[in-house]
């Protein structure tokens, strides 16, 4: 087994439709987010009460909201928020979950048992309700949304890492390494981790898209990032009472979420096919 399937993967990737479409969409969203740092059609911090609730037009492509802000600009800046929250919460899951899962696989026995039971415990909590409780303790805000989403990413990555690592431990190349006298920690870092990296990348993509959805949900119930930072979920919340007056306020932020999540899911599917054909038929 080679440690890196990338060179071989490149040509395969270009032929994979999911991967190409997903990468394109994700790329566009990422560019939009980066662009918003230097340029947006209008400033999102300035209100124009007189020009509120305007439907889409040439001057405001996606219309204006109830404070007269440009919705396109809001969506662009809001993408930063979604991406940042999802990214950091995935990073938390990776940074804590993967070592735990690898440790459990390497040690086995009661440590494995305990860690997996803790996993079950976290899984047993309804995620959104727990997020509500977490924000009741710490108050709403982007950081707390990250914590709430991140906590639930930990057991996901722990389970994936442990499962994959367990299937590797009885393999010959690991048995060989053990015969050479390498310790569990060294084997984990030198042999196990590189071989499960693909799997983790795929899972990270999936969790990233779930993170975008979760952030939108939390913001929608008022627990995500706070004004003046625009967020897609809160834009939808504000649109709700005005849906009869200004349906465009509800339409576009929702489309932004769907397109972003769709792009990430396609990218994840594509990556799975490209990086590890064996996994193709799972899920």
């Amino acid at each position: 087994m080679t440690a890196s399937p990338w060179p071989e993967g490149m040509s395969k990737a270009i032929g994979n439709r999911s991967f190409v479409v997903g990468l394109t969409i994700t790329g566009i969203v990422a560019i939009m987010a980066v662009l918003s740092f230097v340029w947006t059609p209008y400033a999102v911090g300035t209100l124009d009460i007189a020009g509120k609730l305007k439907p889409p037009s040439w001057s405001h492509w996606l219309g204006t909201d109830h404070y007269g802000r440009d919705i396109l600009s809001m969506i662009m800046v809001g993408s930063r928020n979604s991406i940042a929250v999802a990214f950091v919460s995935v990073a938390i899951g990776l940074a804590i979950g993967v070592p735990l899962g690898l440790w459990a696989a390497a040690r086995g026995g009661w440590i494995d048992e305990l860690l997996m039971r803790l996993n079950d415990l976290v899984f047993a909590f309804p995620a959104l309700l727990s997020a509500v409780m977490i924000t009741a303790v710490f108050g709403p805000g982007a950081i707390n949304a990250i914590i709430a989403i991140g906590i639930f990413n930990i057991p996901v990555f722990a389970r994936v890492a442990r499962g994959a690592a367990l299937s590797l431990w009885p393999r010959e190349f690991i048995l060989g390494a053990r015969a050479c006298g390498k310790g569990a920690a060294r084997i984990t870092i030198e042999h196990v981790l590189p071989n499960i990296a693909n799997l983790l990348v795929v899972q990270a993509t999936i969790q990233f898209s779930l993170g975008i959805l979760a952030e939108a949900g939390l913001s929608y119930v008022g627990l995500g990032s706070q004004p003046p930072m625009p967020s897609w979920g809160r834009m939808l919340f504000e649109a709700q009472t005005m849906i009869g007056l200004a349906p465009h306020m509800a339409l576009f932020p929702g489309l932004a979420i769907v397109i972003t999540v769709l792009g990430l899911n396609l990218l994840g599917d594509g990556l799975r096919d490209v990086l590890d054909p064996r996994l193709r038929r799972e899920r």
Binding site: S209, L213, A216, G217, Y220, L236, A239, Q240, I243, G244, P247, A250, L251, P253, G254, I257, V258, I259, V261, L262, N265, L266, D269
Partner: peptide, 18 residues
């Protein structure tokens, strides 16, 4: 189905209400 997975249910709910 791929699109369905990407739709936040509360947004879908808003569209249904509208």
């Amino acid at each position: 189905a791929q699109i369905g997975v990407a739709i936040p249910n509360f947004w879908f709910a808003l569209l249904l209400v509208y």
